[in-house]
Amino acid sequence: MVQYVHDQTGQKLHYVGHSLGTLMAFGAFSRGEVVSMVRSASLLCPIAFLGQMPSLLARAAADAFIAEDLYWLGLNEFAPGGGPASKLVHDICSNSGIDCSNLEDVLTGPNCCLNVSKSYLNDQQPTATKNMVHLAQMIRQGNIAMYDYGSEDENNKHYGQPTPPEYNMSQIPTDIPLLLAYGGKDLISDVKDVQTLIDKLGGRDPEKLVMVYKDEYAHLDFVHAINAKQVVYNPIMDFFNLH
């Protein structure tokens, strides 16, 4: 996608990603891919390390290999708001004793600033079930690595080694300006995991590693909060204008 936009416009991009969109950027940047086409990156609720993630529902789903079950059943699309995925989530809630009466909050954190008349999980776009398997692997292992194909033989076929290579965050070029926006109530992009990411990024020019921290924000607030323009998007535009 970055290559296409760059080729069509002849310009470097300002990249913005939320949640899974940040993982895509970290993977590409750490491998030196598309970095020459990017002017800056604003990464909301960054996902790199998930080992300390406090979302009981997401961790229970990972530990129960729910995504793997869906994948091996031939369900290649994971739709958060309905279908088999939704039924399995509710089964987890029933069997684990997790109160899922407010599914958005139990999964993503107590979002402070959403329009309470709407359901936002139903608005989330589907993704590949394989993506969810990959995230579950990262939750269980606490690292940021490529997809694990489940056997040494299969991993050797894809990577030339028996285990998936890890992404090295310190390899992200220091001349790419990064803005990391994260919240104190986020149950997926946890503050401690974000700090691990910051530590792994290493020493950088303060103007090229900018933090936007909102203690009252959870995972969905960064996209859907009624005050997100003032709290998140205006600082992002200021960041873009600097670069």
Rank of each mutant, 00 (worst) to 15 (best):
I98P: 10
S55D: 12
F78G: 00
R59D: 00
S94C: 08
A60W: 04
A85G: 12
V106E: 14
P84N: 01
A62T: 07
G83N: 06
N76S: 12
A41T: 03
H90L: 14
V116F: 01
E104Y: 02
T108M: 09
N102D: 15
P110Q: 13
C45R: 04
R39P: 01
A62K: 09
S55V: 10
G51A: 07
I66A: 08
L43R: 07
D99H: 08
P110W: 03
N115V: 00
L107H: 00
A67C: 05
P84T: 06
S101V: 12
A64V: 02
P46H: 10
I66W: 02
I47N: 09
M53E: 10
E104N: 09
Q52E: 14
L107E: 07
I92W: 13
I98K: 08
S86D: 12
P46W: 03
A67I: 05
C45A: 15
F49G: 01
G82Y: 01
A79Y: 09
L107W: 04
A67W: 05
M53I: 06
L56V: 08
P80C: 05
N95E: 15
S86G: 02
F78H: 10
I47E: 03
D105M: 02
S96G: 12
P46Q: 05
S86Q: 11
A67H: 04
L70W: 05
D91W: 06
A85H: 08
M53V: 10
W72G: 00
P54L: 10
T108Q: 01
S101W: 05
L73R: 14
A67G: 03
S96Y: 10
S86F: 15
L50P: 06
P80E: 02
F65D: 15
A60E: 15
E68G: 06
A48S: 15
G74D: 03
G82T: 00
Y71R: 07
H90E: 14
L43S: 04
D69I: 01
S55W: 07
